[in-house]
């Protein structure tokens, strides 16, 4: 039997929705719609958009490859100091992204702790490259993936894994065939969050990878610089980024996410 929705929940919920959507509506209302098509198909916007999509996707792959095992370690192992480790993983979430970018420079920059050896031994220099953009985005976005996968793992019933083990499955086989499928919704939710965060990344990217068209200028960087001289163009660029990300997320939802809705 359904009872009436409690007002104490509904009112703040509506206020919350308005709080999130009204600024978005403001962007749409103030948009110079006449110039939208020409902006959308201009070479610079196409270049920045393509770079954004490629880098965010590569960063998400990096996060998946490193983040899922990390989440598993945090949820399933009996490592000492796991609580501290879990708190440390969330550091990039609270760190201002610009500081994250400076930290990356101090470690991976040309004179960085690790970066100077990369430069001397292999001739690899990461700042000001597309690889640098991917790294900066992955650094900022990975906690989103780790936290959602770890949450899903902790909520999952470990007895299935134990049953698999009693049937003779190795831990790696159990992970692949039992654990991973059971936490798939959490992995997908984490992946989507991670990708979205990477797509909007600004501070760490511009600090670590700099800004050069075609190489490191992603959409958020293009928006920021457009704001300096032409606020209308910045609004248009923001809407382009919004439309594309909403389209991708909605498309993914239909194709991959068949959770209860």
């Amino acid at each position: 039997m359904r009872s009436r929705l409690p007002v104490v929940l509904v009112l703040p919920a509506i206020a919350g929705l308005a709080f999130l959507l009204v600024p978005l509506a403001g962007l749409l209302i103030k948009a110079p719609w006449a110039t939208l098509p020409s902006q959308l198909f201009s070479a610079e916007v196409g270049q920045a958009l393509r770079l954004s999509l490629i880098c965010a996707s590569l960063a998400t792959v990096v996060c998946l490859v490193l983040g899922v095992p990390l989440a598993w370690l945090l949820a399933r192992s009996d490592l000492p100091g796991r609580g501290v480790l879990r708190a440390l993983v969330t550091v990039p979430l609270v760190l201002p992204p610009v500081v994250g970018g400076v930290a990356l420079l101090l470690v991976l920059g040309r004179r960085g702790i690790v970066g100077q050896h990369l430069d001397q031994w292999f001739g690899i220099s990461l700042p000001f490259t597309t690889a640098g953009v991917v790294l900066a985005e992955a650094f900022v976005a990975m906690p989103f993936l780790v936290i959602s996968v770890e949450g899903a793992l902790r909520a999952a019933d470990p007895r299935y894994e134990e049953a698999a083990a009693t049937l003779g499955a190795s831990r790696w086989l159990t992970f692949r065939r039992v654990t991973l499928p059971s936490v798939m919704p959490g992995v997908i939710a984490g992946t989507v969050l991670c990708w979205a965060r990477a797509l909007g990344e600004f501070g760490a990217t511009i600090t670590f990878a700099g800004n050069f068209p075609g190489r490191t200028t992603t959409m958020p960087l293009a928006v920021y610089l457009a704001l300096e001289t032409d606020p209308d163009a910045a609004i248009v660029l923001s809407i382009v980024l919004l439309l594309v990300s909403v389209a991708v997320l909605a498309g993914l939802r239909d194709k991959w996410i068949s959770g209860p809705s």
Binding site: V102, F128, I206, T207, G210, N211, F212, E228
Partner: peptide, 13 residues
């Protein structure tokens, strides 16, 4: 240039 920074302080960093 290798990078075109958003402000003069970022260049200086």
């Amino acid at each position: 240039p290798d990078t075109l920074e958003q402000d003069v302080k970022a260049v200086l960093t």
